[in-house]
Design a binder for these strands. Structure first.
Lengths: 142, 142
DNA sequence: TTTGCAATTGAGTCTAAGTTTCAACTACAA
DNA sequence: TTGTAGTTGAAACTTAGACTCAATTGCAAA
């Protein structure tokens, strides 16, 4: 199943519709291969000669998160960022000075999560592991 | 050095002042022994018969974070929460349904952080490890 | 003690992300 | 064809937090 099928069957299942606007947002969200914000989608959709309202973009992003195709990631800023859930799970090093985001993977984390969730009988659906500080270059300028 | 001394010497060091308002915010922030938000401080300060403006509270919180006495934690909501940095480092299980926050500690995480930071020559100043999902009770109601 | 200056404060204004509202529109099933 | 429920966009709204600025205050040097 590709993204489109996943999303449309997710929608159908709960009596929602797979509309042209929702398809547009889906396509655009997956044409970006890094973290993005709602505003990015708005701009790119417009640049490609289409038009989807802000409200619909936010509504669709919420659906894409619900159906598990996207995940919300939180950097220092006051607005949300999104990323694809496909591909290996990764975490982030966030530079406070230049804003650079370095991704890393670590399989120990998965085991920690399992252990902790078992202990507290917690049902995980996603996680966030972010180390905040200064990248190699910026650390020199402190 | 207690909190007051840490804060006031942090301020003096950079030519800032340890004012009554800043002291008020410090005291109030440390009289709460769990996560809190800016609004909580505003209310509590007023309840104790004092008065510190919203602007000053936000400004002082930023200073307390800078000097390392407080840390910003991010739960699902659109506004910030804060916690004391003193005491053992811990992480959070966040329930999406009832909003409950369960704290846990895990020493493996510290080692993961060290390993990752060394590899990327990253200078860490804080971290976030949050597992988002459903607590034992809420998992039943899904 | 006085003086001058830079830091600080509070009230109010502003910003921007995201949400809500609602009337018009649309897909689909009966 | 019609009824119903989902969807859309425009605009208004919400809210945390940042900014502005005139008035105030703390402190260091005279």
């Amino acid at each position: 199943m590709n993204k489109k099928e996943i999303f449309s069957s997710f929608l159908k299942l709960r009596g929602f519709r797979f509309t042209p606007q929702r398809e547009r947002v889906l396509e655009e969200a997956f044409s970006i291969h890094k973290h993005f914000e709602a505003e990015d989608l708005l701009v790119r959709i417009r640049q490609n000669g289409h038009r989807v309202s802000k409200a619909t973009i936010y509504r669709t992003l919420a659906l894409l998160i619900q159906c598990g195709l996207l995940r919300e990631v939180i950097f220092g800023e006051r607005h949300s960022h999104y990323e694809h859930t496909l591909g290996p799970k990764h975490h982030h090093l966030i530079c406070l000075r230049c804003g650079k985001i370095i991704e890393f993977t670590d399989e120990t984390i998965e085991r920690v999560q399992q252990r902790v969730c078992e202990k507290h009988r917690f049902e995980p659906s996603q996680r966030r592991f972010e180390i905040i500080g200064y990248c190699e270059n910026c650390a020199k300028h402190l």
